[in-house]
Design a protein around this nucleic acid. Structure first.
Length: 572
DNA sequence: GCCGTTTTCGGCCCGACTGTTTTCAGTCG
């Protein structure tokens, strides 16, 4: 899939055009196209081959031609031309927070700064200030801080970590002042798989007290900016927290604005404009009278624009605005729809909890069933079960069920898909399980064709119910391996095999884009937590958030079936 | 560079905070 690479290139072109002081709307056109490509579930090469590139929002004739050139030749002449005009140092300096194109140019051309290291040195020696207009001591300090931030900037946080920090901050803030409404916002509220910073929105009668409370939170290390309605801090862990304060009448519109995404905001503001309305964080206003006609709740705001309320998870400008205007917003799956977990390990293999502990935790979560899917024999590092172990374990589970109340334990396996695409247990053994989850745990570096073939062979065996974490990625440590998704989805549909959405926080695999594409092929998704201890069973919500971001409803999710319907499904 | 039941040309979301300014440009989200 080249979408991501081309998206990055377009984004860099936007940076370069900014430095060249090009038309800002042209810059935005490139950024918008970049975002659009990132959210695309189809390979651009395929779209190009079918002449459908201009169907993608934000891609017109010019950009379609550029994408085609990249696909055909592997490069882009236009990029080569403009890239030559901009020294690398300027692009590097622009990556520092607080330094934009204007400042970077000033530093390079007027002050002769040739790299970031020199910039830091000169700033610390106060040799930047006083030499040109508009650059004094404060700016030097900001540059030094910006460089520090870049040096220790963490990769984007996993959603799970950000959500835990965010929810803790909310409860602390509530204790520090008179909060009327409070919510997380930004990409965290949209449940993106990783998050750069944490956004919090508050409505209050006493903004000063809330601001002071915020700035004096124990986690705060550095105040980036603070004003009557907006403050930003950096925590001791180097995470940026943004707080925005409005009054109650604006809480809904501020929440829409602050939740974004930016592309979503631009789109709905455009819709508003056509209707003679203006949308900002304070409300929806009539152009004619200047009067506020909505703002208190999100629902009011969307209603004023002729739309139903939209779940935050799909506010990415990937068709949700059009769907809303057409009255076709999908009913998304909810955590309460989930009746069980398909992917749970026990201490029979590499889990830390006993089958009883895992099952009773599932019962407490309100589940009706749980599949214990320990590893298969070849995965020695995970103490995979031999055929003899399998018999003992299944027998043990059958007996355990007589004691358990309210939940049914089923015997499954996470069987290895071997390097040649065969399965780690023979058909006779596999037949003994209530459910077979299959996964790749070795040979990640094989070619795209080979990996695709392995998974397809596993699905075509007729023994596999679910393919677990299909792309093998571990966020922050291992990239997804490339697969021919179209072929995988086609065969999954044909063989009635489900694909997993792993709720495990480092995996979230399939991701939102691929899961949405799978649905379009008619494939059912199964959400599994891949839990290795009881506490991890809680992470189902992250799998559900991926499903929601993929526009999936309960009918698309295997775990929303009742036990009886599920058993019927598995028999087929 | 994109886009169009106002338009194929002339628009393009909107506002907060900072620093260095006597009224605003730059940056960010």
């Amino acid at each position: 899939m080249r979408n991501h690479g081309i998206a990055e290139l377009f984004n860099e072109i936007a940076d370069i055009l900014e430095i060249l002081d090009e038309n800002p709307f042209k810059v935005r056109a490139y950024r918008r196209a970049s975002q659009s490509l990132n959210g695309l579930s189809e390979d651009v090469a395929l779209l190009a081959a079918e002449n459908r590139l201009t169907d993608v929002p934000g891609i017109g004739k010019e950009l379609a031609a550029k994408i085609t050139e990249i696909i055909n030749t592997g490069k882009l002449r236009y990029y080569g031309e403009i890239r030559k005009k901009v020294p690398s140092a300027i692009l590097d300096m622009m990556a520092i927070p607080g330094i934009g194109p204007k400042t970077a140019r000033l530093l390079y051309y007027r002050l002769g700064i040739k790299n970031v290291r020199q910039l830091e040195k000169e700033a610390k020696l106060h040799r930047l200030s006083g030499n040109v207009e508009g650059l004094k001591e404060k700016t030097e300090k900001n540059i030094i801080r910006g460089i520090e931030l870049v040096k220790k900037r963490q990769a984007r946080m996993p959603l799970k970590e950000a959500l835990e920090i965010g929810e803790e901050l909310l409860s602390q803030l509530k204790r520090r002042g008179p909060v009327n409404n409070i919510s997380l916002a930004g990409s965290l509220r949209r449940m993106r798989e990783t998050v750069r910073d944490i956004d919090i929105l508050v409505s209050t009668d006493d903004p000063g007290e809330i601001t002071n409370g915020f700035l004096s939170l124990p986690a705060v290390k550095d105040i980036v900016e603070t004003g009557p309605t907006k403050s930003s801090v950096i925590t001791k862990d180097g995470i940026q927290i943004d707080l925005r304060i409005v009054d109650d009448d604006s809480f809904g519109s501020a929440l829409v604005y602050f939740t974004g995404s930016q592309a979503h905001n631009i789109h709905i503001r455009h819709i508003a404009k056509q209707a003679g309305l203006k949308v900002n964080e304070y409300g929806v206003f009539s152009d004619e009278t200047g009067k506020r006609i909505a703002g208190r709740t999100e629902k009011d705001v969307y209603k004023a624009l002729g739309m139903p309320w939209l779940p935050p998870e799909i506010r990415e400008d990937r068709g949700e605005v059009e769907a809303a205007l057409g009255g076709k917003v999908p009913k998304l799956v909810e955590i309460s729809d989930i009746k069980g977990d398909f992917h749970v390990h026990s201490d029979w293999s590499d889990g830390a909890g006993s089958i009883e502990e895992m099952a009773s935790t599932c019962a407490r979560l309100g589940y009706k069933y749980v599949f214990i899917t320990d590893h298969s024999k070849s995965l020695k590092v995970a103490r995979g079960l031999s055929e003899a172990d399998v018999d003992r374990k299944i027998d043990y589970i059958r007996r355990l069920n007589k004691k358990m109340r309210g939940i049914r334990i089923l015997a499954g396996t996470e069987v290895d898909i071997m390097q040649d695409g065969s399965l780690d247990y023979g058909p006779k053994t596999l037949k003994k399980f209530d459910l077979v989850v299959a996964a790749v745990h070795s040979g990640f570096r094989q070619s795209k064709a080979k990996l695709t073939e392995r998974i397809i062979r596993a699905m075509e065996s007729g023994k596999v119910n679910i393919v677990a974490h299909p792309t093998g990625r571990l966020m922050g440590s291992r990239d997804a391996y490339d697969l021919d998704f179209k072929e995988i989805f086609r065969v999954a549909k044909k063989t009635n095999t489900c694909l997993e959405i792993s709720a495990f926080y480092e995996r979230l695999d399939l991701d939102d884009v691929n899961a949405r594409s799978a649905k379009e092929f008619g494939v059912k998704l199964a959400i599994g937590t891949d839990s290795h201890m009881p506490e991890q069973l809680n992470s189902m919500r992250f799998g559900v958030s991926v499903a929601r971001r993929a526009w999936l409803g309960r009918e698309d999710i295997l775990n929303s079936l009742s036990l009886a319907d599920l058993l019927k499904f598995l028999k087929k």
